[in-house]
Each structure stands twice: as C-alpha cells, then as structure tokens.
Amino acid sequence: MGSKKRTCNMPHTLHHIAMSMYPPRQSEWWWTLANSDDLELYNMPGHLVRRMAQVGASVFVEAAARAGYDLTSVQYAALKAIERYSGIDQTTLAGAIAYDRTTIGGVIDRLEQKKFVIRKVSPNDRRVRQLFLQPSGVEAIRCIDSMVEEVQSAILSGLDTKEKATFLKLLRKAADGANELSRAPLRLVKEP
C-alpha cells in the first residue's frame, strides 16, 4: 500500500493562531489568551520565565538596533563583565554572566569581529586568553548603557513600582536558589 502525503493547513505562527482564536475586536485579546485555563502551561514558572526571557531579548535587540548597534543582551553582559574585570579569561567570563562555557567562545568571536574586544595571551599561562575592551567596545557600552534602564522598564511595563521591586527581589531569590541546577551557573568573580 502506498502512503498518502498529508498536508497541514494550520496557521504558521502563534500570532495567526491567537488571531483566529481571539479576533482583535477587543483591544486586549492577548489578555484573554494569557489568563485562559486552557493550558496548565500558562501558570508554570519555567514557561513564564522563558516568555520573559524572550521579551527581554527582543526588547534589548530592538533598542540596541535603534541605537545603531547589532548587539544581543548576552554580548552586552559580556562587554560589561569585561569592562568591570579587564583581563578576565573566557571561562571566568562565562561564570560571571551565567553563560555556557562551551558557547561563550562564539560570543567572544562575534565581539572580536565587531572590534569591541581583543584577546591577548596571558603572561602567566600561554593557554589562557585574556579579554580586553577595544575603544569601540567602550563607546558601545557608553551608548547602550543610556538605554538599558529604558529596556528594563519596558520589560516590566505590566508592573507598578512596588510590584517591580517585589518581583525583582523574588526573581533574584529564585534564581539564586536554583543556581546550582543550571548548566551555566552564576559564578561571582573573586577580586585579585
């Protein structure tokens, strides 16, 4: 027997799905979707944290682009850590920004291609590459720093001032409490 090829005519994006389920005749159709009890998923912390991470990444990239930079929030975090700990090595940098050690090299490669950082062989250990900001990296940080507060505010725009403080306090507590469960736990840098 021959197999029959199946086709799927379903919408291709969440936006299309949401629009077909909740037409935008009311301005807040997304609120109905988000507060639906249709899926337990909507109330699971892992799902909510992932959604907030998506929001944060999107808002940051868009704001950086408006400022004239092709920069991700991870690249910005790396630049800030290199600024604070000039001469930091890649492994220590990965821990300082809670990023996977096996992929931090790609982040540094892109920052190096953009002429924001430079790698130098450590005078103490030729196997170690130390990271330093280039003048264009310093300039990028200066420019991006001015819009980071705006980005943070946009990410939490659904909360009032008191709620933001409570949310950040609880989020920090939850992140610190689960730190060792991560494949890329935060590791504070010890000052020399």
Rank of each mutant, 00 (worst) to 15 (best):
H47A: 02
H15K: 13
L168T: 08
V61I: 11
Q26I: 15
P23T: 03
K5W: 15
R119P: 01
T92Q: 11
N179I: 00
L159Q: 08
I155Y: 08
V117P: 03
H16V: 02
L131G: 02
A53V: 07
V121P: 02
L93S: 02
M1R: 09
A18F: 14
P23F: 13
G2H: 15
S136K: 10
E28K: 15
P123S: 11
G68N: 09
V148T: 09
A65M: 12
N35S: 06
E150G: 06
Y69I: 03
A64T: 03
G106R: 14
Y85S: 00
L159C: 04
E191I: 05
Q152R: 11
M10C: 14
Q90I: 02
H47I: 01
H15C: 10
K5R: 15
Y99K: 08
Q75S: 12
D145W: 09
V189F: 06
E150R: 12
R119F: 05
M1C: 04
L168I: 08
D125S: 00
P185N: 02
N124L: 13
K190Q: 09
K4T: 14
N179H: 10
P185H: 06
E180H: 13
G95L: 06
Q26G: 14
G2D: 14
P192Y: 12
F132Q: 02
Y69E: 09
G105T: 01
K190G: 07
Q113G: 09
H12P: 01
P24C: 07
L111Q: 03
R101Q: 12
T13S: 03
A64C: 11
